[in-house]
Design a protein around this nucleic acid. Sequence first.
DNA 1: TCTTGACCCTGTAGTGGCTACAGGGTGCAT
DNA 2: ATGCACCCTGTAGCCACTACAGGGTCAAGA
Lengths: 135, 135
Amino acid sequence: METEVWSIGDLARATGTKVETIRFYEKSGLLPAPPRTAGNYRAYGAEHLGRLSFIRRARDLGFSMEQVATLLDLADRKDQSCEVVDIVARGHLAEIDRKLRDLRALRKELAAMIASCDHRTIADCRIIEALAPRG
Amino acid sequence: METEVWSIGDLARATGTKVETIRFYEKSGLLPAPPRTAGNYRAYGAEHLGRLSFIRRARDLGFSMEQVATLLDLADRKDQSCEVVDIVARGHLAEIDRKLRDLRALRKELAAMIASCDHRTIADCRIIEALAPRG
DNA sequence: TCTTGACCCTGTAGTGGCTACAGGGTGCAT
DNA sequence: ATGCACCCTGTAGCCACTACAGGGTCAAGA
C-alpha cells in the first residue's frame, strides 16, 4: 500500500501553521525530522501530521513548548499511568488562574483610571496623575 | 540650594527596579541619559526618579513600552487635551478584555479535560485524547 | 526549450522586555 | 594596601516565533 506524503506547505495548510514555524519546531526537537525527497524537500507522513496537530492544539491551549514536549513524551508511553499528564495539566490550570487574577486586578484599576478622566488638559489628567509617583 | 543626586543603585532601590533594567530603559529611550560623575557614574536627579516611577507603574499596569513612551510624550505637553491619553488607556483596556476572554475560554476547556481524566493508562487518557487530532 | 512562478532550502537576525554574565573600573573603610 | 560593594560597557540568552536574504526545485504554459 502506498503511503501519503505531504510537503511542508501541505502540512502548514492542514494545521494552520506557518512553514517557518514547522521548521522551527523541527529545530527545537518537538517535531521529528522527516525523510527528504531527491530534491531535498521534507516529505511528511501521517504520523507527522498527527504530531503537529497535537502540538498546535496544546500550544493554542497555552501550554509552553516545554510542557508540550513533556506531554508528547508521555503520550508515547501508552502503557503507563497518566498521572503525570494530569499533573502537567493541573499546573497549567493554576498558571492560568494566576494570570486571570492579575488581569482582573489590572482591569479594575485601569477602568477606574479611565472613568475618572474628564478630558481637560493633561495638567489635570487623572490618568497621568494615577501613573505619576504618589499620585 | 543643593540638588539631591542618586546613583543608579539608589534609583533601583527607590523604585523596585533592577539596575540592568534602568540601563535598558535608557538605551531604549524611555529614560533620558543622566549626567555623569567624575568617575563616570550616572548621577540622577528628582526628575529621573519621577519618570522612572511613572514608567514602572505604567508597565505594572500592563502598558507596553511603546504605550509608555506615548504616555510620557503626552505627559510632557501639559497644556494639551488629554484625549489621546484616554484613547491609549481605552485601547489597553480593550486588549486586557481580549486577553481575559481568551484565558477564560482556555480555562474552561482545560478544566473540562482535567475533570474527565480518571488516571488510567495513557492509552485511555482523556487529556491526551483531547489534544490529539479529531479527539 | 525556455521561462515563469510557486514552492522549497539554509541560515541569520529581529521582536519585547528584560536578565545574566564577563571583564573591567571606582570609591570608601579598615 | 586591601577588601568589598558598587559602578561601567558590551554581549548573549530567554520564549515562541517571524521575517528576511540568497539561493535551489519543479511543474505548467508559450
